[in-house]
Nucleic acid binder design. Structure first.
Length: 576
DNA sequence: TATCATGA
């Protein structure tokens, strides 16, 4: 018998299945099968095929026989080597593949009987889900469809006048696109506003909130992270909460008090940084949205998709069943900035434009370096002297940030932090906590929301003092010094280098990033785009051309197996 | 084959 067991955050299917999943490359992780809900038969088979390929490769490797197509194979055959057992092995593997496929089908059928998975016909294919993800996806699609069709109040005042009033109040001039975005918030039931950094998303929210307020309507402001919520409330001068908080999350029970039976109250709900919202969170959120409430979703569709399943912002936009305003004019940086130009090129999958040789005033540089050691050395050199000199900044300045795609490795976040601490902040007596040391003047990052201290996950600070007697540390965040007790030390981490994911939502004058083929799993267009657009004045990429090319060409992570987009299209077609 | 991450 197969059973679903819950262990920590992971669902395990009994031993045979795990064995099967391991052998077949099917991983059951974070409550869903193969990384994404709605995995199709076709892609399941591809995964299996891939695993068999790897096995084949591995088998050859063990017998010192290279795989056809590899450089080594070509070289050796050129030299007259013959690999006679090649064919047998391949044939065996093909048989194995059939057996594996059959085993997977049987396992999934068995799981279906136990209602441990939901199998759904979709077009000519079949989709496999864990029940929760199936339910979540259905609910999100149906509710978005229903909410969009629900009648709503349109303003009884002159909208154009209201917009110019806001312009005056905020003392700025909206572009025509921005004006449109503001006005559409009042003319549409559900609206998506998307645009890159510097396209004025927050200013638009500000104006929208202002107009709603003057109209006498209640607006709820929320964001998926504590930091984004804090930023939102700072710019709008109104209360903004995390989505978890507006839904009144209960961490002990893992439930939300707000839901169908206890909906949110208000006339409009604005979610900022919507690109970070994943399918489960959207499910809980949408359940708590009453029919009359307007929904305004704001985010950058080109940023990193949520780590959790789903790619909702993208799916909503692509489905063309939700109204979208795209902000594409850039205000923050000039048009001749290579950072801006290249950010656009990355999103189109075009190759980058490099500064002319010897150019000293460009804001983007690519230092070609194939060797990991050399990349490492270059980064050290950039951080200790070249960048601080060029921008006249202190080497310890929080305005210089190293970003890395991964934690592991010589040019990973962890090692870079260790080495940068040694070079940038030597000779300081620090406090040891486990295997790390916190020193005076160190750059640190808060990694957990703390509402008492008013610091949030992702906030960057500097160690102001270290008290060796009481084992306390004082950290200065934006002019405020906060005291950390010994047992609070896990709330901060050294932050000379941070992951690209962590850097999302922050901006720095200068950004340095290694990019090598060893990061291949992370080499995605969105990742590179996010890293590049964190810099305002200077962005330096150190790495191999091949890695750069892979990253730009790879738009795969955008294509997830969720069927939110397809289902939104289907549901509106079926109703006609 | 193995990476990133939020929330109370």
């Amino acid at each position: 018998m197969l059973k679903l067991l819950k262990k920590g955050n992971t669902v395990e299917i009994n031993k045979r299945a795990i064995c099967l999943t391991k052998e077949a490359g099917l991983e059951v992780r974070g409550d869903f099968i193969v990384g994404t809900p709605g995995e199709t038969w076709e892609s399941l088979e591809k995964t299996v095929r891939f695993t068999i390929d790897m096995k084949l490769d591995y088998a050859h490797f063990n017998k010192f026989t290279p795989f056809p197509g590899t450089e080594l194979y070509e070289k050796l055959t050129e030299q007259g080597h013959v690999f006679s057992f090649q064919k047998d092995l391949e044939q065996n593997c093909m048989k194995e593949l059939e057996v594996e496929k059959e085993k997977i089908k049987q396992t999934i059928e068995e799981l279906k009987k136990q209602k441990a998975v939901v199998i759904e016909d979709f077009d000519s294919d079949k989709a496999v889900y864990l029940p929760f993800f199936h339910k979540a996806q259905e609910q999100v699609v149906q509710t978005i469809h229903r909410l969009g069709a629900f009648p709503f109040l349109t303003p009884d005042f002159n909208l154009d006048q209201a917009v110019s009033d806001e312009e005056e109040e905020l003392s700025l001039q909206f572009s025509s696109k921005q004006k449109l975005a503001v006005k559409e918030c009042f003319q549409k039931k559900i609206l998506v506003i998307t645009g890159g950094p510097g396209t004025g998303k927050t200013t638009i929210i500000k104006a929208v909130v202002g107009i709603f307020h003057k109209w006498g309507k209640d607006v709820l402001l929320a964001a998926p992270t504590g930091r984004a919520a804090k930023r939102l409330s700072e710019t709008t001068h109104r209360e903004a909460k995390t989505i978890h908080r507006i839904l009144e999350y209960n961490p002990k029970l893992g439930t939300f008090r707000r839901g169908e039976n206890c909906p949110l109250s208000g006339d409009a709900l604005i979610i900022d940084e919507f690109s970070m919202v994943d399918l489960p969170l959207m499910y809980y959120l949408i359940k708590a949205v009453p029919s009359w409430m307007r929904l305004i979703l704001v985010g950058d569709k080109d940023q990193l998709p949520s780590v959790g399943p789903g790619n909702l912002l993208h799916d909503f936009i692509e489905s063309q069943r939700v109204e979208v305003v795209r902000l594409d004019e850039i205000f923050r940086q000039e048009k001749d900035s290579l950072i801006v130009v290249n950010a656009h090129r990355i999103n189109r999958g075009d190759s980058l434009i490099y500064p002319p040789k010897g150019e000293k005033n460009a804001d983007f540089y690519f230092i070609r370096q194939d060797d990991e050691q050399k990349v490492f050395k270059t980064i050290m050199n950039l951080c200790t002297s070249r960048i601080p000199e060029k921008l006249s900044l202190q080497p310890l300045s929080p305005q210089i940030q190293v970003i890395s795609p991964m934690y592991r490795g010589l040019v990973g976040v962890d090692n870079l932090n260790k080495e940068l601490q040694q070079r940038l902040n030597p000779n300081q007596e620090g406090l040891k906590f486990g295997n790390r040391e916190i020193r005076e003047h160190d750059k640190v990052m808060q990694v957990r929301n703390n509402y008492e201290k008013e610091v949030f996950n992702g906030d960057i600070g500097m160690v102001a003092y270290v008290d060796r007697n009481s084992y306390r540390v004082g950290v200065e965040f934006y002019g405020r010094t906060l005291v950390y007790e010994r047992d609070e030390m896990d709330d901060i981490t050294i932050a000379y280098a941070v992951s690209v994911h962590k850097s999302q939502g922050s901006e720095y004058q200068a950004v340095v990033m290694p990019l090598l083929t060893q990061h291949y799993i992370m080499l995605q267009r969105n990742l590179f785009y996010t890293a590049l657009t964190r810099a305002r004045k200077l962005s330096v990429i150190v790495g191999s051309y091949k890695a750069l090319y892979i990253a730009i060409k790879n738009d795969k992570p955008v294509k997830r197996n969720c069927l939110v987009k397809e289902k939104l299209i289907k549901i509106s077609r079926d109703q006609k």
